[in-house]
Design a protein around this nucleic acid. Structure first.
Lengths: 347, 347
DNA sequence: GATGGTGCTGCAATCGATTGTCTACCCGGC
DNA sequence: GCCGGGTAGACAATCGATTGCAGCACCATC
């Protein structure tokens, strides 16, 4: 009745129906384009290829991986896929993986080192060819261990001095924000600084601080609040800013989600953006442009970052030397710093 | 110098160093708990297990899959991982997969049927044991084809009459919203209805319409706008609502992101939420609670939905009969319909 | 006419685990 | 002394593809 789940076509089936040996068929199907002539007569090549197409042959990846000890699999670990930024980076990774005949496993570490370890272990047991980490912690020795065990990997989004990575230029991003704020006349600025273990946030903060410093402005300690930066965390951090000092002229939220939380708090305190307080986010997520008061932010090439990370990993897998890459961010000025009074995207 | 990437431990190594046969070792390591006694003497079992632990043995999944024709892999296709809702569902899927010794591949279809086909094909070539689709389209024959080819799969989030699925009760969700709006005195309501091919949105709309209808209210056609519902789409849809009729008393945005777009448009038109227009979203994403005016919405158990979908798939894989499941949503009343004037979450 | 390519294809080992079938041994019972 | 029946474990085939090594035919060259 039901077209039984017919066993997949194997190399042997092809070989037998063609009266050839599996090895011949294998070589022909694995040789790209022209240099297949090296392995079989033109007619034979055609017959093999035709039959393979006709029967919809696809090699069993488990058999191939068993033999070659390569799996064309990469493991990806991110803090959290719910985070738009990481989801986008992953989309880039996955897209590039497909283009290169690779497949990816993703999992969340929730930024907890023990998860990172366990999940990495699981992926290695699955015999992935390499790993991509989006959740590197500053000063962690885990990555060094892995490198010592010769596990191929690259970092994305967050960097680490001794390992190849693809990141945004967060330091520059931070500088751009600070310069924009200075240029629009705000010198009393609070920063929602994100977790201390993430290079992204720390570099953004450093960039901003350096610019202010160069302008002769020293941000007092209570103006920088560290902590988790989802929209909830942004709310908490902003409350803290308002609780520990006078209302600042501007708030630099080092990601867009925390900016949304900040918006809410400011509104609760009957403070208007941008007249009472200017607000800047980071990442230019789609929401930034669509908020009631559109958000000034820094656009970072998240998708590209993911793509490049995968491509870098491929280089590592090929045994080629690689160097870390830094992608250039771009300031997007909108209404929340008085850029354009319309609540529309500037795109 | 560098601790060479020592070849992984194999069954044969264990067997040889213990002076046993691989088959014995295999059986012992694969037998759970007690009935291992069937295969080897107590002492032998201990020796095998100890050595396996000591050498950190992990079976080569490719070898096992080749032999057993099972991979413990599942493929997941979602419209887009950037979408918080789908990302959360996927997190649930992945979590449950890990607990059951499975691994998952995810990919985006961007809701385009040809992508769905191609990506599914790729996953089948990777020899996944089953598939989970989060992007079912109403009236599409692709899933029927797959079912006919005996590919095990389940649907999640969006349902389809003839295939097992785990969904939220979107119809009920729609009803809850409409009842709440009626109860708070709004009868002229516009609905941002989402794409027509997605059961989720369509059921939410139907639920709302049915309630109004039962109350003797017939929503005019121009009050329901269909189309993509990211924050950008929500903006466009809301503009259309305002352009094609008088300002409604309430807007039911069938997901939270479109509600954010709606917020922006209303603000541009100098309309206040909830006094001029009430606003309701759907999904209760974290942003909903943190918006300047916190958003009334419907909480749907996204994470659980993902978990159940994977568990359902496992039942299918075991050959057990399964029935679709519907998870109960919950109305969360906040400031955007006048529920609580504070911009805080009610949590 | 022997030698040596070269062009095409076959042989067989191998990757690591799973699993149906067999065997050797021990024990008790008659 | 022989038989039946466990127990503890070994043997060997198998999954499907990859790849080093031959082998053979045919032609050209010296």
């Amino acid at each position: 009745m039901s077209s039984a789940k017919s066993r997949p076509v194997t190399l042997r089936m092809l070989a037998d129906t063609l009266g050839l040996h599996v090895s011949t068929v294998s070589r022909v199907l694995n040789s790209p384009g022209v240099d297949v002539e090296r392995w079989a007569a033109t007619g034979t090549v055609a017959r093999i290829r035709d039959l393979a197409k006709q029967l919809d042959y696809h090699p069993n990846p488990h058999a191939a991986s068993l033999r070659t000890a390569r799996s064309s699999l990469v493991g990806v670990i991110v803090p959290r896929l719910q985070d738009f930024v990481l989801a986008t980076i992953y989309e880039g990774i996955e897209e590039a993986a497909i283009e290169n005949g690779f497949s990816t496993f993703v999992t969340n570490s929730m930024d907890r080192p023990e998860n990172q370890r366990i999940r990495t272990q699981m992926m290695l047991e699955r015999r992935v060819d390499g790993m991509i980490f989006g959740d590197a912690h500053i000063g962690e020795e885990f990555l060094d261990d892995l490198a010592e065990r010769n596990v191929p990997f690259v970092l994305v989004s967050r960097g680490s001095p001794n390992h190849p990575s693809v990141t945004g230029d967060d330091y520059l991003g931070g500088r751009l924000v600070a310069e924009h704020l200075l240029a629009t006349g705000r010198t009393d600025v609070a920063i929602l600084g994100g977790p201390r273990f993430a290079s992204t946030f720390q570099n953004r903060v450093r960039g901003a601080i350096d610019v202010f410093h160069a302008a002769g402005i020293q941000l007092p300690e209570h103006r920088i609040v560290y902590g988790d930066l989802d929209s909830r965390g942004g709310r908490a951090a902003t409350e803290e800013v308002l609780a520990t000092g006078p209302v600042p002229e501007a708030i630099f939220a080092t990601n867009d989600f925390s900016a949304i939380g900040a918006f809410g708090v400011l509104r609760d305190h009957e403070l208007t953006v941008p007249t009472d307080v200017a607000l800047v986010g980071f990442n230019d997520t789609p929401l930034a442009a669509e908020l009631p008061v559109s958000l000034t932010t820094v656009r970072s090439p998240m998708h590209t970052m993911g793509r490049r990370a995968l491509e870098l990993l491929l280089e590592v897998l090929r045994g080629n030397p690689v160097t870390s890459e830094t992608l250039r961010p771009e300031l997007v000025v909108r209404a929340s710093t008085g850029g354009s009074s319309v609540g529309r995207s500037a795109r």
